[in-house]
Computed example of a mutant assay.
Amino acid sequence: MYLNRLHLRHFRNYREQEIIFSAPKTILLGDNAQGKSNLLEAVELLSTLKSHRVSCDRDLVLAGESESKITAQLTRKHGSIDLALLLRDKGRRTATVNRENLKRQLDFLGVLNAVEFSALDLDLVRGNPETRRHWIDSLLFQIEPVYAHILHEYQRILKQRNSLLKQAEHRSLDPAELESWNHQLIITGTKVIRRRMRIIDRLAPIARTWHTKISKNTEILTITYAPNVAAIENTPEAIYQGFLDRLALRSIAEQSLGNTLVGPHRDEIELTINDTPAKAYGSQGQQRTLVLALKLAELELIEQIVGEPPLLLLDDVLAELDLTRQNQLLSVIEDRFQTLITTTHLGAFDAKWLDSSQILQVRSGEIFQA
């Protein structure tokens, strides 16, 4: 797939800007806080409907304006696609594909596939389990868009069940009502668990191969899905029973705390290097190798499943990598993946890379040909 054109109106610090992408690699050059990352964020929103930087749409709208719009023209192997996303400081978004407003935003997912790699991704190793759950969920949104609906439904049920548990402080729970919510939580939670299991089973060996290559056969990466619910096997029946047993075990604690303690919202994705937890393992360099391997594995897995290479968004990551890892990353990209890369200087790129790249200068929310 290839992103031909991107137009931003009142998005972040961009008032009105159109970018025509004329090469497989586009380098966005400029000082910090000029709008380079904002442009990548716009592409990320078109891909996943989410920003990894903010959670409220009003933060994406230019100050003083009530709405912003991102439009794009994309070429895939089956033809050309027009995308548009209208963001409002108050109210619901409008998502459009080929000039048709979508009733379900779920239908927007999976049209533009992209993998973003930024300095914030080091939190995949150092951060809390929620960070790793969000990472694998975002990957699933692109590969299996219906998963977004499943996860949203699970979160809705979880919220309702928590509300019921909180009422236990003031009155006795209705056993039949709690049983009903338990059933819904288990049914939907099982769908979340099984999809996470499947995607990690496919991603883990690819990431392991990349990690072995980057570390020059000195380290072995293992990715393990550790669900909060134990099951003897990966079948809906086994997971349902394990879920039910654990809910019974934690029932008193849940009612005491007024909170659901069982389910995929408490899952962990364990990352180990040579059988040692990566979070506690070695240097930042080793942690960066791990994250680089994860991102390269994402690229490869999406390409395998959707049949086309996704876009690669690199947000100032070369500064985070040593020369060896920079070369590994740049050599993998070549012209295989359309790449948008932000940087404050061009020193990390060799002449061949620069000659085959489109270089755009970014200053104060405006883009110029360098």
Rank of each mutant, 00 (worst) to 15 (best):
G91L: 09
L85A: 09
V97L: 08
D121W: 03
K90W: 05
R99K: 05
R126C: 11
R88E: 10
L120F: 12
N98C: 06
L86H: 10
P129N: 10
V111E: 01
F141V: 13
D123K: 00
D121M: 05
R132F: 03
N101M: 06
L106C: 08
E130K: 15
L140E: 08
D89E: 13
L83V: 12
G127N: 02
L140Q: 14
D89S: 12
V97F: 04
L124H: 01
R132N: 12
L140A: 14
S118Y: 01
G110S: 09
L87K: 08
A114K: 05
V115G: 00
N113L: 11
T96G: 05
E130A: 15
G127T: 00
F117R: 00
V115S: 00
F141K: 13
N98R: 05
L124F: 03
T131S: 13
R88S: 09
L106Y: 06
P129D: 06
L83Y: 00
D107L: 06
T94K: 10
H134A: 15
A84P: 08
A114V: 08
L120K: 07
A114Q: 06
L85P: 05
Q105V: 07
A95Q: 07
I143R: 08
R88G: 08
D123I: 01
R104F: 02
V97A: 06
L109Y: 02
T131Q: 14
T94D: 08
S118N: 04
R133N: 14
E100M: 13
L112G: 03
W135E: 13
V111L: 01
R132W: 01
L120H: 07
D137M: 14
L86S: 09
L109A: 07
Q142N: 14
P129F: 11
L102M: 04
S118M: 02
L124W: 00
N98L: 06
R88N: 13
N128W: 15
Q105G: 09
L83P: 02
D89G: 09
R104K: 04
D89P: 07
R104H: 03
